[in-house]
Write a protein that binds this DNA or RNA. Sequence first.
DNA 1: TATTCATTTCCACTTCAATGGAATTAGTGG
DNA 2: CCACTAATTCCATTGAAGTGGAAATGAATA
Lengths: 101, 101
Amino acid sequence: MEVEVVAKRLAELGHTTRLQVFRHLVKGGKQGVPVGEIQAALGVPGSTLSHHITRLVSVGLVQQRREGRTLYCVPQYDVLDSLLDFMKEECRVNGDYAPEP
Amino acid sequence: MEVEVVAKRLAELGHTTRLQVFRHLVKGGKQGVPVGEIQAALGVPGSTLSHHITRLVSVGLVQQRREGRTLYCVPQYDVLDSLLDFMKEECRVNGDYAPEP
DNA sequence: TATTCATTTCCACTTCAATGGAATTAGTGG
DNA sequence: CCACTAATTCCATTGAAGTGGAAATGAATA
């Protein structure tokens, strides 16, 4: 994964509302959570929420599936996974891996 | 760790230049890397770089240690660690942990 | 103490994110 | 077809991020 993509994804998660949305989705599971339910849970105005979800979708962290008139938001576990993997590998956590002084 | 703090840290890492700075620091190891060296490595103007570093410091991802007239930037491995842990735990990666449809 | 070096602060500018009310589209049922 | 619901797009506004040249600071050295 290129640095730009990683940065974009981190940036999208780097916003309180969007991070809460994503957490809510993850808790909701693979079948997804309707936009309206997120709205009710977080108490964010519809248009604002829609913008945030659009951004999460734009970087691949969320996908949407329509069922009748409700739109389900589905968290992309694998994308978050690879994002965290990148951070673990590229930024070699835990000092043990880093050269000693 | 509260959501706001996590979001802030993610946001700071969510910028190409800052992410590159951090990666560079991590590779540099615990003793830290001088600002000037980062500047040379990434080819970013001094003032711009200084702004970015200030932000990384402001969220605790980097600390600075002065030695004579050179400022060493030291990546805070434990902070990144706890950040990634939060994402792993709170956002229960890998679908296995999420309720089935 | 004047000079050079490393880095920051100052300042100005431009762009973009965030926000949310109002209008609009899309889907369903009477 | 009309009313209703779910969600988005439109639009305007506000504030903040990003950028970098020029001046200032802090520290070593001659």
